Simulated scan of single mutants.
Amino acid sequence: MKNYLILFFLGLGVSSCGFLSEEAYQAEFSELEEIVDRLEDQGALMSQSLDSIAHLYEHQIANYDSLLVYADYDKYLIEGPFSTATPGSDSTKSSIIVLNTTSDRERALQEVAATNFLDEHFSDFVRKNDLVAQVYSNSALQVSRVYPCYDHKNIVDPNIDVTQFNFYYAANEINNPSKGLVWIPDAYVDPAGRGWIVSLVHPIYKEDSLFAVLGVDFTVDDVIYNYLQDFEGEYLLVNAKGDIVAGKAGAIENISMPPLKNHVYRETVKSENFRVSDFNLFQSRSKEVRQMAQDFLLKKSQVFEFQEEKNLKAALCYPFQEIDWYMIQIIPNS
């Protein structure tokens, strides 16, 4: 990325810009780069860990008949769609749902027992990765296994079809023919009740058929709290559509977005009335902010200087390499 920055400044001619000096731009871009690097480094570690579990998962189910023979059918008690394990009752267990949409409940219950080996690996994964909200497997037979255990009986509708959610179909044969890891760049509401999240998923194949999708979730709240709050300045993390995946309150207020619940974005994204369309750069009340979004996301510019917004000086944009996201710094007038 360092070479990218050098080439950027050579080609941009920032000394001709009227608001910030070339040195000031370089300093701000260096901080943007650090934020992006930290997030991408964390993502790379998560990817490697999830990939390891995926390979183990596929190796195990390649011998599915043996798994059934030696499976512990008594580990989980399933009452209706739900396992009886509750949060805090047993840290070694996941929450299991055999959804009502399964095509074969008996086979699904067998699958629960055959895949109990995942619990140990899920627990280890969460223990080693502080930012992980949950790790899970959702199968073609509509078996959902989520760790750590959560209040699934009161949160999840047992009549959903898990294959219709993006954390499943983004990894299927049509959308992921390479059969590898896939980042889901759009934040969405977690059916398990953990608010707005982003996901990394990996398909699991048994022979030539999609057996399940393995996934890990990160909450928007954690992205804000653990990364953006460590840096001075006002930052926005947006996807290619202009949706604000995460952001500091000051940045969001400065670009004429809707009022924030309790003036804090991380509280707003937990609220039931939050709509991602409300927090899209192209929906800003400011014509210049909408133009900034077009320049950054469509024209791939990296600097935007405000002319009409009295409270804003400039904005800088830095792209991610592994996911179609952008880190934007909003620079207000002092």
Rank of each mutant, 00 (worst) to 15 (best):
M257P: 03
E309P: 01
L236P: 06
F282N: 14
K248A: 03
S277Q: 10
D230N: 15
E234N: 15
L228H: 02
T268V: 09
G242C: 02
R266H: 08
Y235G: 09
V276G: 00
F279G: 02
K248Q: 13
Y265M: 11
M292I: 09
Q302M: 13
K261C: 02
I224G: 04
L236H: 07
D243P: 01
I252K: 04
D230K: 13
N273C: 05
A293V: 10
R285K: 14
F274N: 04
V245R: 00
S256Q: 10
N280K: 12
E288I: 09
Y265D: 03
L236K: 06
T268Q: 10
E272S: 11
F304Q: 02
K300A: 08
E267T: 01
M257N: 01
E272P: 11
V303W: 06
I224N: 06
Q302L: 12
S284L: 11
V245S: 03
K310P: 00
G242P: 00
L236S: 05
I252N: 05
A293T: 05
D278M: 07
M257R: 03
V238W: 11
K300E: 10
E267W: 00
K300D: 11
Y235D: 01
Y227C: 07
I252T: 08
F274Q: 08
V289W: 00
F306M: 10
F296R: 12
Q283V: 07
E272F: 14
V238R: 07
S301F: 14
K310I: 00
L228V: 13
R285E: 14
I224Y: 01
Y225F: 08
K241D: 14
V238L: 06
Q229F: 13
M292D: 10
K270Y: 05
S271Q: 09
V238F: 12
E253P: 01
F296K: 09
